[in-house]
Design a binder for these strands. Structure first.
Lengths: 335, 335
DNA sequence: TTGAAATGATAAAGCGGTTTAGCAATTTAT
DNA sequence: ATAAATTGCTAAACCGCTTTATCATTTCAA
């Protein structure tokens, strides 16, 4: 049978109070002798406190709920890794919920997390869902006084949030292309209304403007950040434009384009200068190695955790925007 | 303030007992009138039970601890997705622990999971750690009477386990190569002592044998299932062998080889027929598309969950071995 | 009618801890 | 020697829920 505190108390011939005090290292007036004794007994018998009981009594669980759209996606799984490592280092647990981009699930699961007594929630919203400024967040915001932070998404609301600077990303990528002499630059960004998609486009425009290149809306394409979209849009680009370079606003679409070109027995990289976004580790194995905008997912995760704990402790509202950089490899050539 | 059962009881003018009975749909003798009344009150006030209290009282948490070596690795993150989805569908939670291939962590974290009152543990051992038959598992096996199943690993111990048939995988891959006329087939498998690495090699030998091809130990290479190993081993293969085909026992090493070849301005696929292992989704975007042994990770995950719940319920010992198949695309050519 | 059975509801103990207030014994200061 | 302060320890309430045993009332059958 599982050993309880009561058992230990009995063995040590003291009260439960004393045991609790000792085992939690509370500064209380207990003789060193008993302290040693109790600790030894606990250790010898491999005592593990029942954390449901602890939670119930203390009203805190040392657990943070993490809501992610899709663990299967490399971006999110890396982020998750960063988050759970950061939490673990600070003595916290991550209770992870995978919503599979399902809207209903998102708010429902948040409910359940609350019932689990999590001390806070890290919400990584589904891109799909967040386009409208997020009903989800605002909704559960109202009801809840639970600390939470929005990760990798942006809203005008005055809530805790942390994300990457997508305007900068779009700008840097475009800037690089321009520096190499490109003027007809196609961009495939995400769907209208997604903040980061629009921001990357905004950055793109900004770079053009700064370099006195006219913006041509025919060079703007939109996809769903998936393989399929890459497939479709590259076809259009070939047919309808005279672009010399392409800026893919995520690597997945870039891979889709590669696939399509392979099928057509064409070489994407011969034909265009290419820059991607996310800097997926695969980019290094291609020939040429693919340039890409790099977002430090690790930092996003650990900063999010730091922010979370700060919010729990100090009840403040934080907002943070992480810088990005471009990893220039071989796929962008001088024109 | 959070609404408790007591509050509801007061509102409905009944005892807590009644509320509990009603809200848990226990078949008890309660008038329909009160049932409706109580349910309405609970719904209207958005009552969420405190699950620490429930766990404490019932001694079950509807939570399964899942221990994984590395969420960042695509294989594990996909498995995790399958597991957590399967659990969710059955009303369970996954408490996920990422050990980062850290041995100490593995057993320590298992301890903590137990303290959390998980109803069972799905252990996906680190390949690294599992080579010796797993001190970890055996260790915590002794102490614990908690239901658990070993996922994606094999041991002679009479414990619950589920994994893929790696002998079959090795066999099928090699068989395909042989059918296409290859006789000098290099294999890059995992390190000695890793059950699945050895099994894949076993399958390789079996296929050779069945086809009366002599086994040549100079064609056997070992790596660490990572990019780097692919880099290193392809170099040796080029230099030291006359292989016409290469069987990579995981895709990551294959990608490493591609990278190396790209750097050398050589084309891996022109020079060799290639088959990989894992059937990572990237295989479809290369040119040629890469053939690979496909393991149904989804099934592994959901079967593991099914097994887990069975173990919880029926206290039986289960063992299961999943079949694999080869996904033949374009990288294996007739010799 | 009356005793048995069925119905409706509850009190109270228990799950395994934390924490506050207080008591007794010892030490210290005067 | 005595009051005050310190030290060492514990009783008991509480966290929010489940569950068993029990009781009072109503319904039913004979």
């Amino acid at each position: 049978m599982k050993l309880t505190m009561k058992d230990i108390a009995k063995m040590a011939n003291v009260s439960m109070t004393t045991v609790s005090l000792v085992l939690n290292n509370k500064k209380a007036r207990i003789s060193q002798k008993k302290i040693n004794e109790i600790k030894k007994i606990a250790a010898d018998n491999n005592y593990i406190p029942n954390s449901s009981a602890v939670s119930l009594a203390t009203n805190e669980s040392k657990t943070i709920g993490v809501v992610v759209p899709n663990i299967g996606n490399p971006f999110y799984s890396l982020l998750l890794k960063a988050i759970s490592d950061a939490l673990k280092n600070r003595g916290y647990y991550a209770l992870i919920i995978n919503t599979n981009d399902n809207h209903d699930d998102e708010s429902q699961q948040v409910q359940k997390l609350i019932s689990r007594g999590v001390d806070g929630i890290l919400l990584v919203p589904s891109n799909d869902l967040f386009s409208q400024g997020s009903t989800v967040v605002t909704e559960f915001l109202k009801d809840i006084s639970l600390p939470f932070v929005l990760v990798n998404a942006e809203t005008k609301l005055k809530i805790n949030q942390i994300n990457f600077d997508s305007v900068e990303g779009g700008f840097l990528a475009t800037q690089l292309l321009i520096q190499k002499g490109h003027k007809k630059i196609a961009i495939i960004t995400g769907e209208k209304g997604y903040v980061n998609a629009d921001d990357r486009l905004k950055g793109y425009k900004k770079a053009l403007e700064q370099n006195h290149i006219n913006f041509d809306s025919n060079l703007v394409f939109r996809g769903k950040y998936d393989i399929q979209s890459g497939n479709e849009n590259i076809t259009k680009i070939i047919k309808d434009t005279e672009a010399t370079a392409i800026f893919f606003c995520n690597d997945l679409m870039l891979y889709g384009a590669m696939q399509k070109m392979n099928q057509l027995k064409l070489n994407l990289f011969d034909r265009y200068s290419i820059i991607g976004y996310d800097d997926t580790f695969f980019n290094e194995i291609f020939n040429p190695e693919v340039s890409s905008v790099k977002q430090d997912v690790n930092k996003l995760g650990s900063d999010a955790v730091i922010m979370m704990l700060d919010v729990i402790k100090n009840k403040v509202v934080n907002q943070s925007k992480l810088r990005v950089e471009v990893n220039d490899r071989e796929s962008v050539k001088q024109l």
